[in-house]
């Protein structure tokens, strides 16, 4: 072979192919979201509502059999402005990934916030889910494209979080 440049780098990709099975609680959540419903599970000891639901309470390990329907509105708990595109990232930067506390839930879910300037996003900001067209709904969180501000007055985030903390199991 002809003289070429010396090797300086090698690609050493690591790839793990999972066959993912979500289990009962998450399956229930995914089947609900296919119908446009968000659900949570209730801890029988603390009354905390988990979304996405879990089969057992994280705090007390009690089985969580009670399921409640949640609104697709909530508030921003905390957020991150992503300014750097990472490998295979489809989203244009900058974009905002946020923890959103849905109304009726005691744990936040992570989702995108759009239809506003990233600088305007703040904890307590009221947001609402923007859903894909119903014909596209599957068993996926991607049925919600993103959340957008509702324009309502900000929620008292400190008070709400304090209230959630007070539900903790002693």
């Amino acid at each position: 072979m002809s003289e070429t440049k010396p090797v300086k780098y090698v690609n050493t990709p690591i790839c793990v192919d999972f066959d993912y099975t979500p289990g009962k609680a998450t399956s229930n959540f995914l089947r609900s979201i296919k119908k446009g419903q968000l659900i949570g599970s209730v801890c029988p000891d603390t009354g905390k509502v988990y979304c996405p639901p879990r089969s057992y309470s994280v705090e007390t390990a009690s089985p969580m059999t009670e399921i409640v329907e949640l609104a697709d509105t909530g508030m921003v708990y905390t957020f991150c402005i992503v300014n750097i595109k990472f490998y295979d990232q489809a989203q244009e930067v900058p974009y905002v990934s946020a923890y959103i506390l849905l109304d009726g839930a005691d744990l936040p879910i992570m989702h995108l916030i759009q239809e506003c300037e990233v600088e305007d996003i703040r904890p307590g900001m009221r947001v609402k889910a923007v859903w894909r067209d119903e014909s596209e709904w599957t068993e996926s969180m991607e049925n919600i494209k993103y959340f957008k501000p509702t324009g309502e007055p900000d929620a008292p985030v400190g008070e709400i979080m304090e209230n959630i903390r007070s539900k903790s199991h002693a």
Binding site: Y9, V10, N11, T12, P13, I14, C15, V16, D17, F18, D19, Y20, Y87, D88
Partner: peptide, 9 residues
Amino acid sequence: DHKLEFPYV
């Protein structure tokens, strides 16, 4: 299917 990939160089 869930593919987790780290494209290290």
